[in-house]
Design a protein around this nucleic acid. Structure first.
Length: 326
DNA sequence: AAAAACTGCAACCGCCAGATA
DNA sequence: CTATCTGGCGGTTGCAGTTTT
């Protein structure tokens, strides 16, 4: 352990490079070219190790660097290359002129990875998440079958609260009456489980037609009858419904509110009242725990799929399949 | 207005492999 | 053959700027 051998011999500068240092290095490389990095600091008059000089040149001073935000083409290229090469940043960078491995790595870690997760895609495999993947990722144990074991209440509670209030359910959970009841009772006090989705009503009123129906029936067949639901803000037909505007408003006092943070991805999946829905035009959102009150007004067509998922935070939380009642 | 949380990114660290003494 | 040096790489850290509370 300890600092690299090239840095321990003498007291060398660390941290950000000053413009003066940049100038010295640039002058030296311009005149003598890239050669033996270990001798560069001495000849260039820098109190840095050769390794640091090399890095500064490669990542910042090199004249052929592109800089600036990544284009859509570059982004697509990175995604494709990462799918094939994994975290081999140097090899990926070699395919993107003017970009450094460090730059691409940073871009991946701060942006692309999150974008994929948001779309329900595992950034490691570039394939859609499964319950198993997700549980593994978050180190939460799920049970393969309901007959073998039943998760303890504490574990369930953990599952319900982890990830900033998110829940993750495997279908096997739903097979057990105990778990189902627990979840149903949870839903009565946890607005994240079933989000009241109407504006201008008392959010503590869980006797809305949507929720009442949910509570009356078994979870797996408890989807609201879409045909019967027709609020002035949300109109539903037999196999689709319209959410007209998803906007957020601050709600610091109302602990029962939850809601959306508008996003712009078309095709984004999110959960609405127990159903997995997909935006056709963009303006849908992701859950925010106890942060905002959901209000629904203007036009954005949303289709309903038959796979229930649950987006909380930035993450696809569950995959529970059932048939949508037509 | 201040503090806390978040984000982006430059730079560092340790490891490894190849070159050299 | 072994030890040391060096450059290259990927993972991680820490800082500065920005946003949110």
């Amino acid at each position: 352990m300890g600092r690299h051998s090239c840095c321990v011999k003498q007291k060398l500068r660390k941290g950000l490079w000053s413009p003066e240092e940049d100038e010295k290095l640039l002058k030296y490389i311009s005149r003598f070219g890239v050669g033996c990095w270990s001798s560069v600091p001495k000849h260039a008059g820098l109190q840095r190790c050769g390794k640091s000089c090399r890095l500064r040149w490669i990542n910042y001073l090199r004249p052929d660097l592109k800089r600036g935000t990544f284009s859509q083409q570059e982004e697509d290229r990175i995604l494709n290359l990462h799918q094939v090469l994994g975290n081999r940043w140097a090899q990926i960078a070699a395919q993107l002129p003017g970009r450094t491995d460090n730059e691409i790595k940073n871009y991946w870690n701060s942006s692309l990875k999150k974008k994929l997760v948001k779309q329900g895609i595992d950034p490691n495999t570039h394939k859609p998440f499964t319950d198993k993947d997700y549980a593994k990722d978050k180190k939460i144990e799920f049970y393969a079958s309901s007959s073998s074991s039943i998760p303890m209440a504490a574990e369930l509670e953990h599952a319900l609260h982890f990830n900033n209030g998110g829940i993750m359910l495997s279908s096997s959970y739903m097979d057990t009456g105990l778990i189902r009841d627990t979840l149903l009772s949870k839903s009565a006090c946890d607005p994240l489980f079933l989000v009241e989705f109407q504006s201008g009503i008392d959010p503590t009123n869980y006797n809305s037609n949507l929720l009442a129906q949910f509570h009356q029936t078994n979870y797996e067949t408890s989807l609201p009858n879409l045909a019967s639901f027709d609020h002035h803000d949300v109109k539903m037909t037999t196999n689709s419904f319209m959410i007209n505007e998803v906007r957020e408003s601050s709600s610091t006092t109302n602990s029962l509110s939850a809601g959306f943070q508008p996003i712009t991805y078309e095709g984004e999946m999110f959960q609405f009242n127990g159903a997995n829905v997909k935006s056709e035009q963009g303006c849908v959102g992701q859950w925010e725990h106890n942060m905002h009150e959901v209000q629904v007004n203007n036009a954005s067509d949303i289709s309903v799929s038959t796979q229930q998922g649950h987006y909380l935070g930035n993450t696809l939380m569950s995959t529970i399949r059932y048939d949508w009642p037509m």
